[in-house]
Amino acid sequence: MSVEIQISENATEAERLGILSPLLAHNLSNGGDDAHETFALLLRDPDNNEVIGGLYGKVSYQWLLIDLVSVPESMRGQGIGERLMRMAEDIARKKNCTGIWLETFSFQAPGFYLKLGYSEFGRLADYPPGHTRLYFQKLLR
Rank of each mutant, 00 (worst) to 15 (best):
V3M: 13
V3Q: 14
V3P: 00
E4T: 11
I5G: 00
I5P: 00
I7M: 03
I7A: 03
E9V: 02
E9D: 07
E9Q: 07
E9P: 09
N10F: 11
N10Y: 09
A11E: 01
T12Q: 09
E13K: 11
E13W: 09
A14I: 05
L17W: 10
L24S: 15
A25G: 04
A25V: 07
H26N: 13
L28F: 14
S29I: 11
N30G: 00
A35M: 06
H36G: 04
R44Q: 09
D45P: 01
D45L: 09
P46F: 13
N49P: 00
E50K: 13
V51G: 02
V51A: 15
V51R: 09
I52Q: 01
G54A: 07
L55Y: 04
K58D: 07
K58E: 09
Y61A: 10
Y61P: 03
Q62A: 14
W63G: 02
L64E: 02
L65G: 05
I66W: 09
D67M: 11
V69I: 10
V71F: 01
V71L: 01
V71W: 01
E73P: 00
M75I: 03
M75P: 05
M75Y: 15
R76N: 07
R76V: 07
R76C: 05
G77L: 05
G77T: 02
Q78K: 15
G79M: 06
G79T: 05
G81A: 08
G81Q: 12
E82M: 12
R83L: 15
L84V: 08
L84W: 11
L84G: 06
M85A: 06
M85Y: 07
M85T: 04
R86Q: 12
D90Y: 07
D90A: 13
I91M: 13
I91H: 12
I91N: 06
A92P: 00
R93W: 04
N96M: 13
C97V: 07
G99V: 10
W101Q: 11
W101C: 10
W101K: 06
F105M: 13
S106Y: 13
Q108F: 09
A109Q: 02
G111C: 03
G111Y: 08
Y113N: 06
Y113A: 01
L114K: 15
L114G: 08
L116G: 12
Y118L: 07
E120W: 01
E120R: 10
E120D: 02
G122E: 12
R123S: 14
L124T: 14
D126V: 08
P128E: 02
G130M: 04
G130K: 05
H131L: 03
T132I: 04
R133F: 09
L134I: 11
L134Y: 05
Q137E: 15
K138C: 03
L139H: 14
L140N: 03
L140Y: 05
R141P: 14
